[in-house]
Simulated assay, not measured.
Amino acid sequence: MKKTIVITGTSRGIGFEMVKLFADMGHRVIALSRNEEPVKALDLPGVKTFSFDLESSSSFEMLGNYLETQQLQVDALINNAGSLVNKPFDELTREDWDRVYKVNVFGVAELTKTLLPFLRHNGGHVVTISSMGGVQGSMKFPGLAAYSSAKGAVITLSELLAEEYKDRGIAFNVLALGAVQTEMLEEAFPGYQAPLSAGEMASYIVQFSLTGHKFYNGKLLQVSNSTP
């Protein structure tokens, strides 16, 4: 059955690969990214792109109006976009903290709130991409105080939302990723070679978003075979 999937952070890396995989499977994809051109250039059937800024209220209004006008029900929201600053803690500015939290936490919360009226009851699935650095008790790395603490915040947020909306049959789960060969990994760990490609991880997330809600709700799954 054709499903409607909303994905953030689609201009590169895992998000870009997920758009292609969902389109190949025949699903409708709403691809959100500040830079919509990479996905638009693919000219894939069933893919709608938006230039979308998780820090801008007008972006959320635009998306809500589009879903209402098209009378769409959303089967899965994948909160994939992320912002990373790699600096020693004592060099982080207020602006650094604001930028990371506005995208990684406040943007996730606002987008989820925007989509709640459209998420399919008894089958909707919200998948938030976190990081092993946000998992309590996991190994931590210098320079990632803002990023990893923000990724920890969305883990707790998802657990809370799973409880709050369980009567609607909407599942909220988190995937805490380990090392994947992406541009963001290069920013965090320059020169490190990850054991998984963006395409490989995208394939896993695609399948989880389509089926994981049948088995999990309010859960954190650690998707990692290496540290970092």
Rank of each mutant, 00 (worst) to 15 (best):
F189I: 04
F22T: 07
G46I: 08
F106H: 10
L21S: 00
A146W: 05
A176Q: 05
G178L: 02
S197P: 08
L44K: 07
L177W: 07
M1K: 13
L175G: 05
A81P: 07
S58D: 14
F89V: 09
I155G: 04
E159R: 15
D90T: 02
T128K: 06
V154F: 07
R12I: 07
I78Q: 05
H121N: 15
V135D: 08
A188N: 04
I78R: 03
V223K: 01
S33T: 11
G15N: 03
F118Y: 15
N173L: 03
L92P: 10
G218C: 02
A176S: 15
Y216D: 11
G218M: 02
P195E: 12
P142W: 11
S226R: 04
H125M: 09
L54H: 02
G124P: 11
I30D: 08
F106I: 15
G46H: 03
I78T: 00
Q136R: 14
V135R: 09
M132D: 01
E68I: 00
A153N: 09
D75W: 05
S131Y: 10
L160N: 15
K102Y: 13
N65G: 11
S138Y: 14
A81F: 08
M25T: 10
S226V: 02
E36C: 00
Q207L: 01
I14E: 04
L54Q: 11
S11L: 10
R120S: 06
G143K: 10
L160E: 14
A198P: 04
G123P: 11
N80C: 07
S224P: 03
F215Y: 13
G143L: 08
D75E: 12
L221T: 00
A171E: 02
T227Y: 07
K48W: 00
S83M: 12
K2S: 12
A41N: 11
I129W: 06
Y216K: 09
A41W: 04
